[in-house]
Amino acid sequence: MPQRIVSQRIVSLVAGLLFGVGLILSGMTDPAKVLAFLDVAGRWDPTLALVMASAIPVAAVGFALARRRGAPLLGGSLRIPTRRDIDARLIGGSLLFGVGWGLAGLCPGPALVTAAFGIAPALVFTVAMLAGMFTFNLLFEAGSRPRGVAKGSGTSC
């Protein structure tokens, strides 16, 4: 395997680890805390707003530097989504996601992390989440386009 690929995978592993530790440290992996954050009409706990408030500027520096540089440090090309249109899928999908998030207090990252803790209800949620993602692949992706080429629509962001 080329050195560049090995380096990319090591960096990705470290990034995943940092992400997961960040989620745990921040409190995002405690659904009770997440639901208290979302309960704006009840005893609102605003603490988790700080997670985004702190994550976004740090990430913004990374995106700005990556764009200025024009290419990743480890070679290859930047794969930053370019679409700007607001379509029905974006709206409908985001609304559906919010309903699920509000029902359980778990979004995808925290779901995977709490499942990795071996917590049974988190495993139930995560298996169902994977089933939902797989259903998407069956409904929307089957034979629609070569994977990994048109990065604007099917992938995250």
Binding site: G92, G93, S94, L95, L96, F97, G98, V99, G100, W101, L103, A104, L106, C107, P108, A111, V124, F125, T126, V127, A128, M129, L130, A131, G132, M133, F134, T135, F136, N137, F140
Partner: peptide, 10 residues
């Protein structure tokens, strides 16, 4: 909830 989160995010 998990199913909605998986399907909705995708």
């Amino acid at each position: 909830a998990g199913f909605l989160v998986g399907l909705g995010t995708r």
